[in-house]
């Protein structure tokens, strides 16, 4: 009897089945939020979804492809400016502009990758930051987009989104929810595919990965371009919420990279669950410590250091070590077939 007759390979677990049902119910409940939540809560949730998206994307980049970028604000800002430029000068509907921003981001990320992929490790990180600064200085020169002082989204563009303020708030909210759900789905499906398996192998051991047929540079390039495109998409949604853009806000290293790194690191880098836990933790801290002013940042830093020392794999790593739990079934499990049962 061959081993294929005695053993079976599973990809889903009981925990992941429960998680997918709970996740779907949660998604439905959140999609209905405009009917049972106030405007301020909706805005906060929208912000949470966008940070979750940024964290998921940065985690793919740094946690899986090993590309520790501190310059993802380049794409957030690019997305914001793409939205403003395409609606104001291109006369596009905001939805079209948001959709097109993915293409803009991906196209821009190709020459950027060609440039910064010459750098390794810490030099790569600094290179990405320099690129983002170049973007910031570049956009500050464009007087049609408000130069250094910025520009607001014209009223007619905002009005074209939906009729009435409540409908606009709801539309904007659904866009952010859809964005987070889409980014999570893309990350999940990608990591589950054979390309994702290759990327996970690269994360663990580059020498072995290349010896087993994985083209490391190509894999990293693909991830960089996809993440660049999607980060630009998130950026356009961020500034659709804000309705106003300036170079300093658009290319802020604190807002779009430092907080995102904090989220991923305390949540658990190199796992899909980590950014979710991290985002929840970050917003809990922010909402409870908001009154502390700048001390809040010191507290965040102290927490980040403590987590790195006590639980280097983040909060999710801690949970996983204790329980072996996996919510996203990315891996494989081999089980013996039980007699008399298929």
């Amino acid at each position: 009897m061959s081993v294929v007759d005695t053993h079976r390979v599973f990809r889903v677990t009981t925990a992941s089945r429960i998680a997918s049902v709970v996740g779907l119910l949660l998604l439905l409940a959140l999609a209905a939020a405009p009917w049972w939540m106030g405007r301020a809560d909706l805005r906060l949730l929208g912000e949470i979804y966008l940070y979750l998206s940024l964290a998921m994307l940065w985690n793919l980049l740094a946690g899986y492809a090993g590309l520790v970028s501190v310059g993802q604000q380049a794409y957030v800002g690019l997305g914001g400016y793409a939205l403003f430029a395409l609606t104001i000068f291109g006369g596009l509907h905001p939805f079209a502009a948001i959709g097109l921003s993915v293409v803009v981001g991906a196209l821009v990320s190709i020459p950027v990758a060609a440039l910064i992929f010459r750098l390794r490790g810490a030099y790569f990180a600094i290179g990405t930051w320099v690129i983002a600064e170049v973007f910031r200085l570049g956009f500050a020169q464009v007087s049609a987009l408000g130069g250094g002082s910025g520009i607001s989204l014209p009223v007619d563009v905002v009005r074209s989104l939906a009729d009435g303020r409540d409908a606009r708030e709801a539309t904007s909210y659904w866009l952010t929810l859809g964005c987070a759900a889409a980014v999570m789905a893309i990350a999940y499906l990608f990591l589950r595919s054979r390309n994702g398996l290759a990327l996970t192998a690269i994360r663990d051991n580059e020498l072995a990965a290349s010896s087993l047929g994985i083209d490391i540079c190509r894999s990293k390039f693909v991830v960089y371009v996809v993440v660049g495109g999607l980060t630009t998409f998130v950026g356009s949604l961020i500034f659709l919420q804000k309705l106003r853009i300036s170079p300093d806000a658009a290319f802020s290293v604190n807002d779009w990279t430092a907080y995102v790194i904090f989220i991923v690191v305390i949540g658990g880098i190199g796992s899909l669950e980590g950014p979710i836990i991290g985002t929840v933790a970050f917003f809990l801290l922010r909402e409870t410590l908001a009154d502390l002013g700048s001390i809040y940042l010191i507290v965040l830093g102290a927490i980040a250091i403590a987590v790195m020392l006590v639980a280097p794999k983040g909060l999710w790593g801690l949970v996983q070590d204790l329980t072996g739990l996996r919510l996203f079934p990315l891996g494989y499990r081999v089980e013996p077939r039980r007699a008399g049962k298929e």
């Binding site: 996970t200 192998a201 994360r203 990965a209 494989y332």
Partner: peptide, 8 residues
């Protein structure tokens, strides 16, 4: 690949 299973 240290964090993956033998089968993976």
């Amino acid at each position: 690949f240290g964090h993956m299973t033998v089968f993976e």
